[in-house]
């Protein structure tokens, strides 16, 4: 015996005829489709669908943890000192940093030569931002441009992460450079 549901449809003769109701349903669906298609062809937005990835949502919350941003110093160099705190704390181990040595910059002798994040494994937890002692890594509310054909394309490097420069951030005061020490030569 077929199971009886509480909202069992009560069908009259018209519904039991089957075909008229089917055609009515097709007319509703088709109407919506044609209307959206017409709007789309004339350059207007029909359905509420977001045309991802060409179009991204505008209503991300300000606190949304999206794509990483490497902040810059006033002179445009990355604020990162390649201390690897973010890479160490990262639960997905997606951050890889290769450090370089710049003896000419007294205050920041260590800098990142390579800074890469694998977005195919990133869990967007934000611990890297918490761990950073230099406020060098932040997360924008916009998500990264993820769709790709292979996992290697999901590695974003220093150039991609540095391109966004928050205008309000560079204004913060920097400590004065340490005094030059006269004795001793340098490598």
């Amino acid at each position: 015996m077929r199971k009886q549901y509480w909202n069992e449809a009560e069908m009259g003769l018209w519904e039991r005829a089957y075909l008229p109701e089917i055609l009515r349903g097709l007319a509703i669906t088709g109407g919506v489709f044609v209307r959206n298609m017409f709007k789309w062809m004339t350059g207007r937005k029909g359905a509420l669908t977001t045309y991802y990835p060409e179009e991204t949502r505008w209503d991300y919350a300000p606190a949304n943890r999206g794509k990483h941003v490497l902040t810059r110093r006033a002179d445009g160099s990355p604020q990162c000192v390649a201390c690897n705190m973010c890479a160490t704390v990262c639960p997905a181990k997606v951050i890889e940093i290769e450090a370089g040595f710049d003896p000419a910059d007294e205050a920041h002798p260590k800098y990142p030569v390579r800074f890469e994040i694998d977005y195919s494994r990133c869990v967007f937890c934000g611990l890297c931002v918490e761990a950073c002692p230099e406020d060098a890594i932040r997360m924008a509310k916009e998500v990264p441009d993820l769709p790709a054909h292979d996992r290697w394309s999901m590695w974003l490097g220093k150039e991609e992460l540095l391109e966004w420069q928050p205008q309000g951030d560079v204004a913060k005061p920097y400590p004065p450079p340490p005094p030059r020490v006269p004795n001793g030569d340098r490598p």
Binding site: P103, E106, P109, P178, P179, V181, N183, G184, D185, R186, P187
Partner: peptide, 17 residues
């Protein structure tokens, strides 16, 4: 007090005073 950073003690060793 500040002192010399990255002093080249030998071709193999860097000293941070």
């Amino acid at each position: 007090a500040h002192a010399t950073k990255h002093y080249s003690l030998s071709p193999r060793i860097v000293l941070d005073n």
